[in-house]
Write a protein that binds this DNA or RNA. Structure first.
Length: 273
DNA sequence: CGGTAGACCTGACCGC
DNA sequence: TGCGGTCAGGTCTACC
């Protein structure tokens, strides 16, 4: 599910609920997601407060009063549900349930359990998964002067390059296809063959797509919901993702689907070279 | 270095 | 209705 826009939408939703409330109780119903959920989390969080929630790539960092940070990753199907204690009904996929002061509840829901909920550091060492994260696509770090040489010294498909979180963080399968469409570059094109002007367009397209998705509250496929249970609506604006066989909104030609690294890419063979 | 396959896990959907 | 196969927004490891 969640690429940068969905994670950021989730973060903003949680920011409205978690800070300022005390954590009264934490219940954990799964031993592990992608990694084990540390056994000491319920004890350590009891009585604590979340002072802030920040984001690094697709990871959320929960800043806890008087304790280490927690990192949260939504994997493919993770999301947070919010409810009042009165209304809350735990389902089989609600793995971590937080009881907050004034009767609010927040739960981490994740059918596929590919997410992550653990201490951000262990023995003073930052979690290895937080190492080697590439640049933030929405910051000025992503510009053609930086990006072009990066592309020149590699010989991989553009799809693979944009999915590589160590180069640019935050893009996933949906937004890679969308950004490549707006830049007019096919997913199979090799990094080495991308021109300077295409690189310029890519930079623009990546930012434009992510910002538009953010504005729409993310994309909802299957079961993505924001914290309030609302659907994002960017999926209604997809130019190519999931539209194989349908006409290109720009030229009318049929959208193509190919498999790269075991994952689908979508493109228009007329608009993308 | 790059590519590939498999691992983790559950649910939805399709064709028979 | 049931069953098996395929696919899904992520990302790590193992191996060629």
């Amino acid at each position: 599910m969640p690429e940068l826009p969905e994670v950021e939408t989730t973060r903003r939703g949680l920011l409205k609920i978690l800070p300022g409330r005390k954590i009264l109780k934490v219940e954990v119903y799964a031993a592990k997601l992608r990694l084990p959920i540390p056994a000491d989390i319920p004890t350590k969080l009891k009585g604590a407060q979340i002072t802030d929630i920040t984001r690094r790539a697709k990871y959320m960092i929960w800043h806890i009063s008087n304790d280490r940070d927690i990192i949260v990753h939504l994997g493919m199907s993770g999301r947070f549900r919010m409810a009042t204690e009165k209304d809350f009904q735990r389902g089989v996929h609600d793995h971590i349930v937080l009881y907050l002061s004034d009767g609010m509840m927040v739960s981490y829901y994740d059918p596929r359990k590919f997410g992550l909920f653990t201490w951000a550091e262990d023995d003073g060492a930052p979690h290895p998964w937080l190492q080697n994260i590439g640049i933030d696509p929405l910051s000025d770090d992503l510009n053609a002067e930086w990006f072009y040489p990066q592309l020149q010294r590699r010989k991989i498909s553009m799809k693979t390059a944009l999915l590589d979180q160590k180069m640019i963080n935050g893009l996933g399968n949906i937004y890679v296809s969308e950004a490549l469409f707006y830049a007019g570059v096919r997913p199979e094109r090799l990094t080495l063959q991308v021109t300077r002007s295409e690189c310029q367009k890519l930079v623009k397209a990546i930012k434009q797509v992510l910002n538009a998705a953010l504005k729409a509250g993310g994309s909802s496929l299957k079961d993505y919901r924001n914290v309030k249970g609302r659907l994002g609506y960017f999926q209604n604006q997809f130019a190519v993702y999931g539209r194989a066989g349908e006409p290109c909104k720009t030229c009318g030609q049929v959208i193509q689907q190919v498999t790269q690294n075991g994952r689908s890419s979508f493109y228009c063979q007329h608009c993308q070279k």
